[in-house]
Design a protein around this nucleic acid. Structure first.
Lengths: 334, 334
DNA sequence: TCAGCGTGCTAATTCGAATTATTACAAGGG
DNA sequence: CCCTTGTAATAATTCGAATTAGCACGCTGA
């Protein structure tokens, strides 16, 4: 293997010092640095002739910037079963990483302990990257606390509660999005609305339920929280509009209603709280909102850049777009 | 900005020198190097506590190993439009990379020039990794030549023609796979067979056409090459079996035939030359072969390991599995 | 004639880890 | 008591490029 040319080699050929080559190469003019035009030309000529390019490794070592962003997930990202969830995030991340000239390091080798990956295992390689992005519906609190304690630059995709200190994150504004849906339902005349889903556990669930409670309180309408439910429950409670945390629950409810001869949205309005992707043809055309996953990925990379450059703790919630659908309407009086 | 931990920091904490930390970290025992067990334990404890890992850049500057494999593609891998193509390769790569204890670095930072990424830009980062994998239907010849010339360890996924020298690669054996399909068609009684598709440009296309020509010559049957075609063309030429380079072309042909009241495979047999994934429900159930993408990814990582360890130039073609389907049958006499 | 001042360039240091040569010290042998 | 042998650790150097401080010129002006 032919030895690679170094600045030292170029310097020798041009009869100057290595420092001069570097200065010419970077076209430095400032700070009292001056190179005679003819010297500059001579060096450039040698560079041109040899096709020399600076070794990026050495350059980065000196600059102390690896230009590598790590991506950590609690499970493998490529298996197609999980692709729907991760794909949009990764798309945005890749796009923005390309824009800022960073490479992505996938911590695929993170060893699973007790069935789930942990950020900090014995041979954690998190520190290989300049900083990293955490993706997942939930993120381990202890891991977050340790990241903060050790001062590892990172940004969580998805809002996270404090873990000893504020967690830098880029999330979706579920609270506002759910409030907006309730506003719309009330505007359509609904006075008895139910929230179906755990509403707890992951921050994303809690935020949704919080938005629901905000809105029903503000409107003075009746709001019920049902951790899990059936069509019977809903009808029994006299509810005319349902907000389903899980899209699949919402779709199931619509199908069940129609099977029972009820009209949607005539007899029952159903709203879903965040679609992963655009609906497949044949799916129920639910009204609700869309999670800006791709944009979240993009913004997360930007946020991480800020963390790396200014040591700030960016926290941002992106708006969710309303999805028109066809399952929200005015309740029919009986 | 949180400063990154260095061996110097670890050394201070453990009350030893930087050299000692390095020796402990690399578990060096040879060459008259000795570290007292208790000192070793003390250093290891600090490393464990802090989660320190050696800076891969510095490591690579000094010797040339950092346990990172680069993955280069000429376009973004995550956009959903391209996901079907890259996903299986990446799955295999991820799997094998994990097995050999390497992390994956996606060269997303490669600057796009004229809408397409280039391997060698001003600050080419291919050297950041120990070696790298190239994925793409086609790979730029000049890039390949430069990789070879600079002695950068790499393996191409997909067979590549020489570029000044043999290109290390792991491909699919399209030539044999197409021969096999023609064999089967002939065995069913077909005597006039057409190959639809460019059959040129990418090596993968050329290999398929080559296999087609091999087989029709060997059997002494009539083989026609149609760069692009319609059902009319095919019928007009008296062809009874069509091999479609593009799966979508094959599917379109089947649908067109059925719309014209023709039976497939009764009146026309249609074979596809390499499915990306398993067919979606509702798709045409084409007979043909499957490209072992995942396995190619796995083997490519193994091949790259060989390149790195022995400096060899592995070239391998993996067999494509026959896909039964329902579009190949005996031609009906009219 | 020599202080003063640009000009043009280079020596020396830095980044972080790996490696070689070397030192410091203790114990054992003659 | 000194010399050898063995052990444990460190100082110093290396990789390639970027950067800063400063040296050696020649020229000017008093």
């Amino acid at each position: 293997m032919a030895k690679r040319l170094t600045q030292q080699d170029i310097a020798r050929m041009a009869g100057v010092s290595q420092a001069t080559v570097s200065l010419v190469l970077n076209n430095r003019q400032d700070g009292g640095v001056r190179i005679a035009p003819e010297t500059r030309a001579r060096v450039l000529e040698v560079i041109r002739r040899t096709g020399y390019v600076a070794n990026p490794i050495a350059r980065r070592l000196h600059d102390r910037r690896n230009q590598i962003l790590g991506v950590f997930t609690y499970e493998a990202v490529f298996p197609s079963t999980r692709a729907d969830f991760y794909q949009p995030f990764l798309e945005g991340i890749e796009e923005q990483a390309e824009a800022v000239g960073c490479d992505l390091l996938l911590f695929t080798g993170a060893k699973a302990v007790g069935g789930q990956r942990r950020i900090f295992s014995d041979d954690s390689r998190v520190r290989l990257a300049d900083g990293c992005l955490l993706i997942g519906r939930t993120v381990d609190r202890d891991d977050l606390a340790q990241m903060l304690a050790e001062g590892i630059p990172f940004v969580s995709i998805g809002r996270r509660d404090d873990a000893g200190a504020a967690v830098p994150c880029v999330g979706a504004d579920y609270r506002a999005a759910v409030r907006d849906l309730v506003d719309r339902a009330v505007a359509h005349g609904h006075r008895r609305i139910a929230y179906v889903g755990p509403g707890t556990g992951a921050e994303s669930s809690a935020d949704r339920l919080r938005g629901f409670r905000d809105a029903v309180a503000a409107h003075g309408v009746e709001g019920t929280h049902l951790p899990a439910t059936t069509l019977g429950h809903v009808r029994g409670a006299g509810v005319t509009a349902v907000l389903a945390e899980e899209v699949s629950d919402g779709a199931a409810l619509v199908l069940a209603a129609r099977e029972h001869g009820l009209s949607v949205p005539g007899d029952l309005s159903v709203l879903m709280l965040g679609a992963a992707t655009r609906p497949a043809p044949g799916d129920v055309d639910l009204t609700g909102f869309r999670i800006p996953r791709r944009e979240m990925g993009r913004r997360a990379v930007q946020a991480l850049t800020e963390v790396l450059e200014h040591g700030t703790t960016p926290r941002e919630l992106l708006p969710c777009a309303f999805v028109e659908g066809s399952t929200l309407g005015a309740p029919v009086d009986h």
